[in-house]
Design a protein around this nucleic acid. Structure first.
Lengths: 169, 169
DNA sequence: TTTTTTATTGATATTCATTATCAATAAGAT
DNA sequence: ATCTTATTGATAATGAATATCAATAAAAAA
């Protein structure tokens, strides 16, 4: 079953029509094979991926896919709030499912300023959830901003770099 | 008084020798005109700047400055935790003084996923401060990570984009 | 101070992530 | 089934960031 054959459809269990309409169709956008595949990708894989990484993984089951389409779709999904776009200083953007979005697994990042290592943590304190609920409500009102998600990065030095550089380079 | 004339020195009020040593010299790095100028720049200007913007501003009073040096210095200052490097989806990195660093004016960001507008807010709730004090302590211990600063970005839609797109594009 | 060593600089070539272009295709409307 | 046009894939173009390298100047040594 090849997605780019005429009328072929990917049929992942989580790939409900409603979600795709929410991502694309409501605003007049068309639901296509590549878009279907990319939205599904982010609902099945955990973590953050570059455009190249998304392309490489999807190309296996979708031989006709073009890298430009991946860039375009990631950009569109980011604009519509489905994905969040991050840059961790690696020279290329990474995308992950927005925490506001259905299925989004919320987490925060620890980024080593020296070696660039990225650690994720999922172990939230209840306090953390309460904090964000409250602050997002306050900010929405105060700045007339519709908040769809957030990213919290802590910068510093990982265990290894902390040891190696007593005096930071 | 031109900084790249032999032995010339910028002499900004905030440009204390100690700070520059902290940024560069402790680790064997040399204190040079360009580095002096760039560190000073971030202690005088508020907000976040691209390499090009830093270069353009400094080139006025420092005609000999090269763009490559700006990139190199920003990168080094970021690695050492003096600056934080952000990407707001504009295709180029922005740098700002790390909040952990002397003189750093701490703030968070609201980023419009549609038009890219970036809003800063400085008006923190007490709750917000307490939260970060506590969580940074917890995370440091739990993940053996030396935290020097953090960035909190809220993604969503600004007032204008909220109105214009009843159904989000 | 003068000399020596070598990290840093500025100019510029290069890399590579991302975007623009455009003819061909196919999604959704009629 | 046909029509309209948004989307696609291939690839050329752009541009931010990095690598290269001879010249320079900061810090150390004499």
């Amino acid at each position: 079953m090849n997605i780019n054959k005429k009328n072929a459809r990917l049929n992942f269990s989580c790939c409900r029509e409603g979600r795709l309409r929410g991502c694309f169709n409501r605003s007049g956008g068309r639901i296509t094979g590549p878009r279907r595949a990319i939205v599904d990708f982010f609902h099945h894989e955990k973590g953050h991926f570059t455009a190249e990484e998304v392309f490489a993984k999807l190309a296996l089951r979708y031989p006709g896919l073009g890298i430009a389409t991946v860039y375009r779709t990631l950009s569109a999904l980011s604009s519509s709030g489905v994905l969040n776009r991050f840059d961790f200083g690696e020279g290329k953007a990474k995308y992950e499912l927005s925490d506001g979005h259905e299925g989004g697994s919320h987490h925060h990042h620890l980024v080593c300023s020296n070696c660039g290592k990225i650690m994720e943590y999922y172990d939230f304190m209840d306090e953390e959830r309460d904090f964000f609920n409250k602050i997002e409500k306050t900010l929405s009102n105060r700045h007339n901003f519709l908040i769809k998600g957030h990213s919290l990065h802590f910068y510093g030095f990982c265990e290894k770099c902390k040891k190696e550089n007593r005096e930071v380079k």
